[in-house]
Write a protein that binds this DNA or RNA. Structure first.
Lengths: 148, 148
DNA sequence: TCAGTAAATTAGATAAAGTCTATTTTGTTG
DNA sequence: CAACAAAATAGACTTTATCTAATTTACTGA
């Protein structure tokens, strides 16, 4: 035992194991990114993650952020949410759920899967397999809506 | 009557009326863009529309394409479809329907509204009003899926 | 018909997200 | 610790979209 605090949880270790479990070598940057994402269920942009990582002493380049997020997404650790035409959100909640997207604030919030019931799924186009279903409720903050 | 062909349909005239009906001054560029979009229900990117317009003799600048598409969307003539992280699709079918998005080909296809039944809508977050619901079935062309 | 004015269009500069490349650094394994 | 593969990096580059300042067009009323 390498004389380390032992009572404290060791998120690095845990997260390292989790990453290894899905075949990802837990490098410093990846662990850092994972810690930020998995601190709680949330929706973050690549930019926000870059800023978080770099404000915590650790550093990671933009390329690494994108590489890592892509990797995590392909491995099913996070989910890409495409609702904002200018940027992708990375959702650390991978259980089935849907989203509200506030067009005015750009805010993204979760909707529990059981709040929406979808029946009668359409049959898929020939030779395709389903990757996922995204259900997005686009809302606006209620103020007399200007239209022009 | 200004000695014009009369038997032929006059799409410019019709589209002009349609645009006026929603308070849009039918300029040459707008009519051209509308003609392309409304020729049939389809999903086009700004880039494709720009190329179409400019291949037809008429010209429109990039700025006008974006201005016009934004205007049409705000007026409810077309619907913005956000499924591809790199570009927006403009859908000339404004009746309620959903989409398949093929992640491999980037192809977007319609799903009739009656093919998907959604019950149990969630209650909206405080002080928001619903603008629309997007349901996207993300599919992949079926070939042994590589994951890395 | 024409002048005046507001609305629309334009070229090109700019912004921002994301990707790519060539190089360096790190991690692992014997 | 040497050697090799995997990962990280800086910064150039690409693409979509927006913005700006100037020009052109379309409509109005006399």
């Amino acid at each position: 035992m390498q004389s380390q605090k032992k009572s404290a949880i060791q998120p690095e270790r845990d997260i390292g194991k989790q990453l290894r479990a899905v075949g990802i070598t837990p490098t410093q940057q990846r662990v850092q990114i994972a810690e930020i994402l998995f601190a709680r269920p949330q929706h973050l942009s690549a930019d926000q993650i870059l800023a978080s990582v770099n404000s915590l002493g650790t550093t990671a380049s933009k390329a690494t952020i994108y590489n890592t997020l892509g990797l995590f997404a392909r491995r099913g650790l996070i989910r890409e949410v495409i609702v904002d035409p200018v940027k992708v959100f990375y959702d650390s909640n991978t259980s089935t759920h849907h989203h509200f997207f506030n067009l005015d604030s750009g805010e993204l919030t979760d909707i529990d899967a059981d709040k929406v019931v979808v029946t009668n799924l359409p049959e898929l186009p020939g030779d395709t397999q389903l990757e996922g279903i995204d259900i997005i409720f686009r809302v606006r903050s209620s103020h007399p809506h200007e239209e022009n």
